[in-house]
Simulated assay, not measured.
Amino acid sequence: MSTPIRVIQYGLGPIGSAVARHITERSSLKLVGGVDIDPAKTGRDMDEVVGLEQPLGFKVAKTLAEALANAEADVVLHTTSSCFDLFESQITEILNAGLDVVSTAEELSFPWLAHPKEAARIDEAAKKAGKTALGTGVNPGFLMDSLPLNLTAICQRVDRIDVTRSQNASVRRGPFQAKIGSGMTVEQFENKVDTGRMGHVGLPESMGMVFHTLGRKLARYEDSIEPVVADSLIQTDFFTVQPGQVRGLKQVARGFTDAGEFMTLTFIAALEEPLDQDTVKISGKPDLEVILKGTNGDIATVAMAVNAIKRVKEASPGLVTMPDLPIVTFG
Rank of each mutant, 00 (worst) to 15 (best):
A114G: 05
F262P: 10
T240F: 10
G297W: 13
S283K: 12
Q167T: 11
A315K: 02
V19F: 13
D123C: 10
D145L: 00
G202L: 00
F58Y: 13
L271Y: 15
G34M: 02
D159L: 00
L29Q: 14
E226I: 01
T279N: 12
V158P: 07
A315E: 05
E124A: 12
V252Q: 08
E190R: 12
T24E: 09
P116I: 11
V280F: 14
L12N: 04
G244K: 06
P116G: 07
S224V: 01
N307S: 13
T132N: 04
T79V: 01
K192F: 06
S206Y: 11
G51K: 12
A105M: 00
G130V: 02
V158Q: 07
V75G: 09
I15F: 04
I23Q: 08
T136I: 03
V302K: 12
V193P: 07
E66P: 08
D194A: 10
Q251E: 10
L68C: 10
F256W: 15
G130K: 08
N296I: 04
G174W: 15
G215E: 07
S27K: 04
T195L: 00
R197T: 05
S28G: 02
N168Q: 06
D47M: 00
V7T: 09
V101I: 04
G196H: 11
V19W: 15
D38K: 03
G284I: 01
K117V: 06
Q251C: 04
L143W: 11
G51Y: 13
T213F: 06
A114L: 06
A119C: 03
L52F: 14
R21W: 10
N139M: 01
V252E: 06
E88G: 03
A40I: 00
A303R: 11
A153I: 00
R197A: 02
G318P: 06
L292K: 14
R165K: 05
D231Q: 14
K62H: 14
T136V: 03
V50F: 09
L95Q: 08
L319G: 11
T152F: 01
P175E: 13
N150K: 07
M46Y: 10
M207S: 07
L113F: 15
M304K: 11
L147A: 12
M144V: 03
P326Q: 09
V138Q: 08
M1L: 01
V138D: 07
L86M: 08
V280A: 13
S109I: 05
T195W: 05
D159N: 05
K62V: 02
A305D: 13
K128N: 15
E72P: 01
G199S: 02
L29W: 13
D74E: 06
